[in-house]
Nucleic acid binder design. Structure first.
Length: 549
RNA sequence: GGCCCCUUGGUCAAGCGGUUAAGACAUCGCCCUUUCACGGCGGAGACAUGGGUUCGAUUCCCGUAGGGGUCACCA
């Protein structure tokens, strides 16, 4: 019995690896082109960290003329959920991130290096596992869960490292004949890597983000093929990233400690290892402690949360880009209207340690992003959001021509208003502009300094009768409010009032506030001139009448 | 517990042996202004800690503390 015969016994149907090596030739790309991927598991709610990862990868690939692809890591059937792939694809689409290759829906993919779904690559992994056995670098292991538990218990009692390694690897040194015998007898087994690493020796690695790190060599005989015939992450990583030609692996830094294993695997199987970039984790503050944003506990961990809240995906991307490369913020200030795609992202400039996800800052970024949008864009995005989450807003927006005017108030100025951070803010921001909402509802009038009914009515009446003209330009319009103020015994200028408070009842600002409140039911609104222009004379008169009653 | 990574204001962060230790968000005050927002000006606020090395450490080395990760037939 030799290794080859053992390998044939275990994987009688597996192809030679040369078949796959030829089927998936090395990519022909220009010098410096980076092939990079995001490899999520279809386990439900897509994590915002996956989006972070994908965004960064997309940039790296684009900037270097490389390839960005999506690979689905579904080798753990227990955790898989139905429609998981669709969710991932949808989330990427929501954030406007397009892959060059990979899954495009639950079953289909694009690109020449597929399947891009690991559960469909079983034959491939088995061929390479067989190859490992032929090389004498992998072997069948017959340990039952109970035996493994027993080994662990002994190790803990002896206060030594736990795991399946060295003298503890009880099936590692079975003779080939013994192995074959058990297999023929139908004893269940899995396939393990036969590690020649030594725990007392160090391995150095230069990570693109973390820099130089040093670890003990791996000496664990880790499982490469599970009892269901599918590979573990470690083995799938080696085979897939080799075959798919990945040049840079970005992944969360929880993987950093398995770098020695992966490097060892690449070396033992004889493939060139990719470079690694371990990205920092997104954290959140939990009672004074930092911790990883968790899918289970934190709604904001889900990529879909941002859609639901109506936070523009561009805002989320700008915020994340800021975390990725802090120079982004400066660049953005200098290139206010440039596309985020033009920013020169540097993987190696990424922060080494995890950042607390700051919703307040996101909100600020979002306000700026939205302030750059045209009325039409705000309209389209709000409508898209409202169609899923807010019927009343849909109803309001369905009056498109009018809504565009409303959303256009103080938009496009040099210093645009920044009062919308989320699409869910829009309704409250504009609802008072709609007559059918405003006139037909019970209305609060939070008058301020001037608050006597009689006086208010006098102001409203006189304004309409004598001063209001819808064709006035802004200056004339405001001059008239000053005139109105003067006629009724209010100071025409605030400064004048402040200098001589006893000579006047109040000042022009207070009069304006009366008009504003009567018109909108609010003390805080955008520019009143523009509001009145949009409202038009009929509406203004109706609103004043309502206020008087 | 073993191994590994990290530690600059409340938060995100520049900084690579000599700086008055940037900037952004948040916060406070003032100004602009018919309100709010925007904008402008200004304030408060930081190098976890103890040892080295050095003429000089936020920056380099070691220890300590704190935080995080990882030790599966999960990824």
């Amino acid at each position: 019995m030799n290794y080859k015969e053992l390998a044939d016994l275990i994987f009688p149907d597996a192809k030679e690896i040369s078949y796959y090596e030829e089927k998936y030739p090395r990519r022909n790309l220009p010098e410096g082109a980076v092939v990079i991927r995001v490899a999520p598991s279809p386990t439900g709610n897509v994590h915002i960290g996956t989006i972070f990862q994908a965004m960064v990868n997309r940039k790296v690939a684009s900037q270097t003329g490389g390839v960005f692809y999506v690979r689905i890591e579904d080798t753990d059937q227990k955790r898989e959920i139905e429609g998981g792939i669709t969710q991932i694809i949808q989330s990427l689409k929501d954030f406007d991130i397009e892959a060059d290759e990979g899954m495009i829906n639950e079953t289909e993919s694009k690109g020449e290096y597929g399947p891009y779904r690991q559960s469909l690559r079983k034959d491939i992994y088995q061929a390479y596992a067989k190859y490992m056995i032929e090389l004498g670098k992998a072997y069948p292991c017959f340990a039952t869960p109970e035996e493994l538990e027993e080994i662990r218990a002994k190790q803990e009692a002896a206060k030594v490292r736990t795991g399946y390694y060295g003298v503890w690897a009880k099936y590692r040194n079975l003779s080939l004949e013994e192995m074959a015998e058990k297999i023929k007898a139908g004893v269940p087994y899995i396939v393990r890597f036969k590690s020649n690493g030594r725990e007392d020796k160090k391995i150095k690695h230069k990570d693109i983000i973390k820099g130089n790190v040093e670890f003990p060599e791996n000496d664990q005989d880790i499982v490469i093929i599970k009892s269901d015939g599918l590979p573990t992450y470690h083995f799938a990583h080696i085979v897939d990233d080799h075959l798919m030609g990945t040049t840079v692996v970005t992944r969360g830094d929880e993987w950093l400690s398995s770098v020695p294993l992966h490097l060892q695997l690449f070396q033992e199987i004889g493939f060139k290892a990719p470079r690694y970039a371990h990205t920092p984790t997104l954290l959140k503050n939990d009672n004074g402690n930092k911790r990883k944003i968790s899918k289970r506990k934190d709604p904001e961990a889900a990529a879909s949360y941002y859609q639901e809240q109506g936070i523009p995906s561009l805002a989320v991307k700008e915020y994340l880009m800021n975390i990725a490369n802090s120079s982004f913020e400066n660049w953005r200030r200098q290139n206010k209207d440039a596309s985020i795609d033009d920013f020169d992202f540097q993987l190696n400039k990424m922060s080494v340690s995890g950042a607390l996800f700051d919703m307040v800052k996101l909100n600020d970024v979002s306000k700026i992003v939205v302030s750059r949008y045209t009325a039409q864009e705000v309209y389209d995005e709000s409508m898209k959001w409202a169609e899923k989450y807010d019927n009343e807003l849909v109803e309001m927006l369905s009056n498109k021509e009018y809504s565009l005017k409303v959303l256009g108030i103080e938009r496009g100025n040099v210093k645009p208003r920044k009062d919308i951070a989320k699409w869910s803010d829009v309704k409250d921001n504009i609802i008072y502009m709609y007559d059918d909402k405003f006139l037909n509802s019970e209305q609060e009038y939070p008058y301020q300094t001037i608050n006597e009914k009689q006086e208010i009515n006098k102001i409203l009446d006189l304004y309409i009768e004598k001063y209001y003209n819808e064709n006035d330009d802004k200056q004339t319009w405001f001059d008239k409010i000053k005139e109105l103020s003067g006629e009724l015994g209010y100071a025409k200028e605030v400064k004048e009032f402040k200098a001589n408070p006893d000579m006047y009842k109040a000042h022009v600002g207070d009069v304006s506030t009366v008009l504003r409140v009567a018109l909108t039911g609010r003390t805080n609104t955008p520019d009143m001139y523009e509001i009145m222009q949009v409202l038009g004379k009929d509406s203004i008169i109706k609103r004043f009448e309502k206020a008087k009653n």
